[in-house]
Design a protein around this nucleic acid. Structure first.
Ligand SMILES: [Mn+2]
Ligand SMILES: [Mn+2]
Ligand SMILES: [Zn+2]
Ligand SMILES: [Zn+2]
Lengths: 136, 136
DNA sequence: CTATAAAATTAGACATTGTCTAATTTGGGA
DNA sequence: TCCCAAATTAGACAATGTCTAATTTTATAG
């Protein structure tokens, strides 16, 4: 449960003025484990708060990324998606639905990244393609 | 060295009519270890063959992907890129230049992908972010 | 409380990337 | 050579994202 006041405080602690629009956007995008695109966020938010513009959604998502509240990825076909999970983790793309699913960092093991010759690596993730197994 | 006749045979062996445009596109896109976008391919090819249209470049790249001559990725910011390296391998995104660099499959080791609970995995790659080390 | 200025929001223009259609051109084979 | 299916093409259209200039909202100084 993240109440509206909690959201406001969270934004303020990150140096973000909690306007009505920003709180509404935060409530949706920070609470989901989906990986919505900017236009999906716009659709969702407009149901609760009809007076929000496309420009504000794009501006706000960018702001949240800059302030470290969100990550932004371009991993599958289609538009940039936003990710409220800011811990390091991997991603699986469901090839049937196109949906991006979080995979815990320790679910797979990646070795020898530090020893990679000729490169300095800041971060990495495994991107998998497949599908959910039936009972899941 | 991949000569024009070699290219023609390669296309024919993949069931592709080797038109002038397709050969010109193949010469560029199959010979590079860069990861060009469709519009980059268009720019390059038009220098040698001014009579090639945007539609043909998009159509041809799609055809090459369907026929297994090319891979298509959406890994970094920006447009879809095409990859002549059809062996499995990983990718590093140079954060300074934005360039995508191939990393050999055995340069890093990924474990426990088969044991991933709840998912069936068809393929995977490690996507790293960083930069070339000075003398490289 | 009111005035002022800065910050936030907005509509819509614009750019880029990609798809599609309908018309034209090309070229392989009878 | 002729025919016709395949290939190419220009340009319309759609989706995604950026930018600008005008308007609205909000914080705060007086
Ligand atoms: Mn995620
Ligand atoms: Mn590659
Ligand atoms: Zn809640
Ligand atoms: Zn060569």
């Amino acid at each position: 449960m993240t109440s509206a006041t909690d959201i406001k405080q969270l934004l303020q602690h990150h140096g973000i003025q909690p306007s009505v629009q920003r709180v509404a956007i935060a409530e949706h995008v920070l609470a989901t484990d989906r990986h919505p695109s900017a236009d999906q966020v716009l659709q969702e938010v407009q149901r609760k708060l009809p007076v929000v513009s496309r420009a504000t959604v794009y501006n706000t998502l960018k702001l949240f990324v800059e302030k470290g509240l969100l990550r932004q990825y371009q991993i599958a076909e289609g538009p940039t998606v936003y990710d409220a999970n800011i811990e390091r983790h991997h991603h699986l793309i469901d090839e049937e639905t196109g949906r991006v699913i979080d995979i815990p960092w320790d679910a797979v093991e990646v070795k020898n990244v530090e020893g990679l010759e000729g490169f300095e690596v800041d971060s990495y993730m495994v991107v998998l393609r497949g599908r959910r197994r039936d009972g899941s």
